[in-house]
Simulated assay, not measured.
Amino acid sequence: MNSDFPYSGGSVHWHLGPVIDALRTSRETTHNIRHQRRVRELPSREVLRQVVDGVSAALFPTHYGRPDLNDESIDFFVGDTLTVALDRLVEQVRRALRFTPQGEELGEPELAERARAITRDFAASLPDIRGLLVSDVQAALAGDPAATSVAEIMLCYPGTIAILYHRLAHRLYRLGVPFLARLIADIGHSLTGIDIHPAASIGASFFIDHGTGVVIGETAVIGERVRLYQAVTLGAKRFPVDPNGALVKGTPRHPIVEDDVVIYAGATILGRITVGAGSTIGGNVWLTQSVPPGSNVSQAQMRNTE
């Protein structure tokens, strides 16, 4: 063993030489789990957290950036913060593209240019994303009698943070970097206890009250002005398989929730069913069949119909 190895003393004490050699063999040959058995570069969760923090500060400078900004300094702050965030993002996009079918075929110059194009498109979408997020905050202010101000909602409500992460992740998903979007979604999940797949489509004025334990699956479609409470699941009822028994991925298997629906705490809604516009789904309901617009579904009603 090389005496310059930083842990050589410990390696001698613990007889780690054979262990390190065996781990290398496992890593490089026997149990190689790298993408295509070769990709070593991975996106960084820490850098992505910095990117989301920077983009959030650019979207809402005094809430997520610096509270002492004024009319003279705010645009400079937004420009500088966004430049740093996008410079970090483009490298993460480049790394994530290696995990897409298209990226596997690109050379380094083409990969770098594709990453820059995606990052430019992402930046161009930020005003629209901000508009959606403002509608979400306004829905929370209108829908929660305990909410006293926009600032309270943006700084204290986990649902607001979860939706912010989702709006950013969803845009990156649509731009063709699903791995990166999934990482951002998981960071948001870790922060809030709210698990939203980045592919899920969510309309404006979305409000998650309390939030802990909410799960929204990959192919879920949620309309406008929808409100969810804690521990709601919009999940799959079953997982189709191909003739070889392997899971068929990407098929629509999660609910469609139309406009102006309220779903109370603990409700579980499974399968590609439709919850009609203006419906109310009561707490702890287990729903696996579509309901028409204007329905009012309670746990007692479900027991009577089964």
Rank of each mutant, 00 (worst) to 15 (best):
S3A: 13
G10S: 00
H13K: 14
L23D: 07
R27N: 13
T30M: 12
R34S: 06
R40N: 10
L42A: 11
P43M: 11
P43G: 03
E46Y: 03
V52A: 04
D53R: 10
D53E: 10
V55G: 04
P61M: 10
T62Y: 13
G65L: 07
D80K: 10
L82V: 11
R88T: 03
L89A: 06
E105S: 08
L106K: 10
E110H: 14
R116P: 00
A124I: 10
S135E: 11
A139L: 11
T160D: 04
A162G: 04
A162S: 14
A162N: 08
L164V: 01
R167G: 12
L168Q: 00
R171P: 01
R174N: 10
L180S: 05
A185F: 07
H189Y: 09
G193H: 09
I194F: 04
P198C: 08
G203Q: 03
G203W: 02
A204D: 11
D209G: 08
G223C: 02
R225K: 07
R225T: 01
Y229C: 11
F239S: 01
P240T: 03
A246H: 15
I256F: 05
V257L: 12
A265W: 09
A267M: 00
R272M: 04
T288E: 07
S290Q: 12
V291F: 07
Q299C: 05
E306S: 09
E306W: 02
